[in-house]
Design a protein around this nucleic acid. Structure first.
Lengths: 219, 219
DNA sequence: ATAAAATTTTAGATTAATCTAAAAATATTA
DNA sequence: TAATATTTTTAGATTAATCTAAAATTTTAT
């Protein structure tokens, strides 16, 4: 079955939205996430339902069918594998990969993506710590917690991020807050909830906002 | 300036057609090469002329402007670099790369393509022997001749092909007639113009059709 | 429970790329 | 050079994806 560039973006958006909420996704939520209008979304939902990619009943929101879910996971797989390629092989910074991967994820070729997977030695996570589905759509969700949940004296390894904006990614890179880095909470400021961290043997303060969006795996 | 997937395919087609003929390209020729109808081509020509990518006067055929030519060369550059990547890094056969490269060539990112060029160590030719334009659109056209122009006893290195169809490519690969291979003309059959070649110390006969489409560089 | 607010869908247009059929222009040839 | 054939363009539709504005439905709040 053929899916257009646009249909694929809808499937991906629905997948991400329903993953967070774990329930039917609203028309407006899709419209917001794709920067389009609710009326356009309704039109597309009818089309996707026709193709048996989503379960859709008027006014009731949508969920992905098995077919739709596996299609969405394949697009996410492609996106994340390309991100690994860009960073590992082409020396992109982790804040430079998203837009290009948004285009590359729509290239239609199973051979290409499976060979790329092999070339990259079957990576399990992308440059932002997000898991990469295998060719059957299977992946493991690492158990991560935001820095803000740590107490004083606790340690962890930076292993993911919640906010994926390039401005946040740039900030993190400039402050050595990159994947794999060990951190320790030295103190928490009561006034504004900011965290004083020990990073690479240096004291560094991060705001509560940063602490909420930086995910760690316990040691 | 933004060019759509479709516009890019028109520019590429016009480039290839005008390169062979070295003159204005006909509406019907473009329609044939893109498997579309003359009426559709006329519509698109108006649009490309509007964008100053082609010189177009009704009924007079078209040529590329400098802008159009440099855009076409950039698409060809991308196509051929991706082909090198697919063959060199992802172990595609040379008859498997064309369709995927047709999609990859439309990814818009200068950083991507220039980094890919670097990653591949600035290749000068693609897996079929076609030259790859550099980032300024410059490339050298190798001086090649078809096998059928060789006389008995002459030698050469297989360095290019005229026909790019996957059926021809597959035939060549199966008969060790691949890029870089040395050949020597042992005999030419008067009856049907077929060639008896010495390839890798083995005698092999190829039809005149093959001899016309297989290009060699003299020793 | 009903009115007000918010969300979602429908109706009717718009744009890019395409098509068929007919008209216009150019090229061929007798 | 006039008739015929070929090529190209125009006119008018079609399809996918989008939009605005209005109508329908659901949710929230009094």
């Amino acid at each position: 079955m053929l899916t257009s560039f646009t249909e694929e973006n809808y499937l991906k958006a629905i997948y991400h939205l329903s993953k967070d909420l774990n329930m039917a996704v609203n028309t407006n939520a899709i419209a917001d996430s794709l920067n389009t209008k609710a009326a356009s979304v309704t039109d597309m939902l009818k089309k996707l339902a026709e193709k048996d990619l989503i379960n859709y009943k008027k006014y009731q929101g949508v969920t992905l069918t098995e077919k739709g879910k596996s299609s969405a996971l394949n697009i996410i797989r492609k996106h994340r594998l390309w991100e690994v390629f860009l960073v590992e092989k082409l020396k992109f910074n982790w804040d430079e990969v998203h837009d290009v991967a948004e285009e590359l994820e729509h290239i239609h070729s199973d051979l290409l993506i499976n060979r790329l997977d092999e070339f990259l030695e079957f990576p399990k996570i992308d440059p932002h710590g997000d898991p990469i589905p295998d060719k059957n759509g299977r992946f493991h969700v690492p158990d991560l917690k935001p820095v803000c949940k740590l107490g004083i004296g606790e340690k962890g390894i930076i292993s993911g991020i919640r906010d994926h904006s390039s401005i946040f990614l740039k900030y993190l890179a400039e402050h050595k807050l990159t994947l794999g880095q060990q951190i320790e909470v030295l103190n928490i400021i009561e006034f504004d909830g900011s965290f004083i961290l020990n990073i690479d043997k240096q004291k560094q303060t991060v705001s509560r906002d940063v602490a909420k969006n930086l995910l760690i795996a316990y040691e």
